[in-house]
Design a protein around this nucleic acid. Structure first.
Length: 569
RNA sequence: UGGGCCGUCGCCAAGCGGUAAGGCCCCGGAUUUUGAUUCCGGUAUGCGGAGGUUCGAAUCCUCCCGGCCCAGCCA
């Protein structure tokens, strides 16, 4: 957080924790956990949770945040996801130290605790099929009815449960259920399943088990076993809290811990989907190139796009933690990136839509070395050498035969403009293709006394970027736009129907200044007057590739095209 | 329509009975070899609505309206 940032008011969760600490609760300690299921890559919504949980640990002395994989559904999980999650949490700047856990570490313990529930008459083995269980559950407005197996003796239940574990029954034939209340207005309390039979090889436990515990049973116990003090989760688990507490209350003699679950609202972002199911769909159906496609709101996608950990952390800090359903503007995230990159991205020049300029009075073979600062305000970032030659490229958007209005201050026929870090040039003649009428070249002259100096007797307001035609390299530049055309991709019911067909524009053979050959994959630059660009890992020696992370703020665009579609909500 | 939760500026968000913080966006203006950055200044007589309690209400009470979540052997 920058020095002039106003003091951030504490959110309600941090306030509760501060109060608990002050009251000496939990022995004056606070332990949190980030509990992802390894069934997909982490996204910006997870970043919010990571920043909260790890952030709280950082803010309190001797506090710690565990990384725990909630791996109770082997059919959807795998090792690739586990590795990506660890990588992303680290990249965001957080450290779980030695506290890496798996819910599957507790499978034996969980099994024993399930037996305790059975022995105490708090759980029973049910022979109803999935369809039957649904029927027996009732509806939102009608109570459910008891399973015929509900009053089975603990002895029978225990025998059945052991045989479930021993593989005597087919998948789906039995479940272990908590015996709570089939008439509860909270559907989660209507005898929820806590174990199901599923012959699936688990990425951590292999084929040791053919029964797997369900989230509600697993999560609260895992929290208790790890002595988590504050179990923070999103609002959709609010209805599960009574269940969370129910299990812990019943098993208090065994666990001797009762973490507190607190819920906060999940992050929603304009023009994006943040749901693993949908993200998987985008990846599997080829709408994007992969989990790390720069258009994806995944941590890996944002990283490849050019986002920095600092910008994401700052974003999470600014949106805060509340229970209000929030829908954050995508521009808010982009603003955080710009703010971070403004101070640290080295400057360079690149031409997206080249227009050749020949400076007739510039010596034919002269190659002039010019030292240009890497950052206009920060000399510590050093300098680089750029090369001035007789032929250069400028951007087509920076020239018009006739100025459209008095505010236009780029190059116009017969007028002057400064080439950034170089000379003032004047457009003398416009060369067009005789057939198409397309402008193919500009013939200009330059004022040799204007390098690092203002021209005599006149003011030249406009400054445009340029690249030498002979001393430059060529790059592929990928321009990204939002993945969806609607602020709410769900509009109309099918998010796939709202995919932006032009979310990616690939520009080939863009002239970029030669200093960029030294760039490493992942380095991010500000291409002056254009935006921030990050070198893509797919780059090769011959073909550097740059991804546009975000454009610069562009107040000229507002004047010249004030009613851009994108500005509408 | 059962239950749970939420409604303060376009977007986030403080506020917790004493007379509406802040950030983003937006609008002016200054500086600028990036129409960037930076810097100044502006932007809710109003807190979903209606009543009520009180000297005083965004904050307390009542009713109403709107939104989100829950009927996986997913998490």
């Amino acid at each position: 957080m920058s020095a002039n940032e106003p003091a951030k008011t504490v959110d309600f969760i941090r306030r509760i924790i501060a109060e608990d600490l002050a009251a000496g609760k939990n022995g004056g300690k606070v332990t949190t956990r980030f509990p992802p299921e390894p069934n997909g890559y982490l996204h910006i919504g997870h970043a919010k949770s990571i920043c909260l949980n790890f952030g709280i640990a950082q803010e309190n002395a001797s506090s710690i945040c565990h990384l725990r994989f909630d791996d109770t559904n082997p059919e959807k999980e795998n090792e690739e996801y586990i590795e990506s999650i660890k990588k992303d949490v680290k990249w965001l700047g957080f450290d779980w130290k030695s506290n890496l856990f798996f819910a599957s570490d507790y499978f034996d313990k969980l099994f024993e605790l399930a037996k305790v529930l059975i022995q105490n008459g708090d759980a029973y083995v049910c022979s109803l099929s999935a369809d039957e269980i649904r029927e027996y559950r009732g509806t939102l407005t009608e109570p459910g009815k008891n399973s015929p197996d509900r009053e089975q003796s603990p002895e029978v239940n225990l025998d059945l449960f052991l045989r479930m574990r021993d593989g005597e029954f087919a998948d789906g034939s039995y479940t272990l259920r908590a015996k709570i209340d089939m008439t509860s207005p909270n559907i989660n309390m209507r005898d929820p399943a806590i174990y199901r039979i599923r012959r699936a090889t688990h990425h951590q436990t292999g084929d040791k088990w053919c029964i797997y515990p369900i989230y509600d049973f697993t999560h609260c116990i895992s929290d208790a076993l790890e002595a988590i003090t504050h179990s923070l989760c999103t609002l959709e688990f609010e209805d599960h809290r009574p269940l969370y507490d129910w299990f812990l209350d019943r098993l208090q003699p065994q666990l001797k811990q009762h973490p507190q679950q607190i819920e906060f609202s999940r992050l929603a972002l304009d023009y994006t989907v943040v749901s693993k199911r949908k993200l998987i769909k985008l990846v599997n159906d080829g709408f994007v190139a992969g989990w790390d496609d720069p258009r994806m709101p995944t941590i890996s996608g944002l990283r490849r796009r050019g986002y920095t950990p600092e910008s994401i952390r700052n974003f999470c800090s600014r949106i805060g933690i509340t229970k209000t359903p929030n829908n954050v503007e995508i521009g808010f995230l982009e603003g955080c990136l710009r703010e971070d990159l403004e101070n640290k991205a080295l400057r360079a020049m690149a031409i997206l839509k080249p227009l050749k300029v020949v400076i007739d009075n510039y010596p034919v073979d002269k190659v002039e070395e010019i030292t240009a600062p890497n950052h206009p305000q920060n000399q510590e970032l050093g300098n680089r050498t750029i090369y001035m030659t007789r032929e250069v490229y400028i951007d087509r958007d920076d020239f018009m035969e006739v100025a459209p209005n008095k505010k236009f201050k780029r190059l116009v026929t017969g007028k002057e403009v400064r080439l950034r870090n170089s000379y003032v040039i004047k457009c003398e003649e416009v060369i067009k293709d005789p057939n198409s009428g397309e402008i193919v070249e500009l013939r200009c002259s330059y004022d040799e006394n204007t390098l690092n100096a203002n021209p005599e007797g006149r003011k030249v307001k406009g400054v445009i970027h340029w690249v030498s035609a002979t001393q430059s390299i060529k790059a592929e530049i990928r321009l990204y736009d939002r993945l969806f055309v609607n602020a709410n991709p769900e509009d109309g019911g099918d998010f796939l129907a709202n995919i932006n067909p032009s979310s990616l524009t690939t520009l080939k053979d863009c002239p970029i200044e030669s200093s960029l050959v030294k760039a490493n994959s992942g380095d991010t630059f500000q291409f002056e007057r254009v935006g921030y660009f990050s070198k893509d890992p797919d780059s090769t020696e011959e073909q550097p590739i740059f991804n546009r992370a975000v454009t610069l703020r562009d107040s000229w665009a507002k004047i010249s095209e004030p009613r851009r579609e994108q500005r509408k909500r």
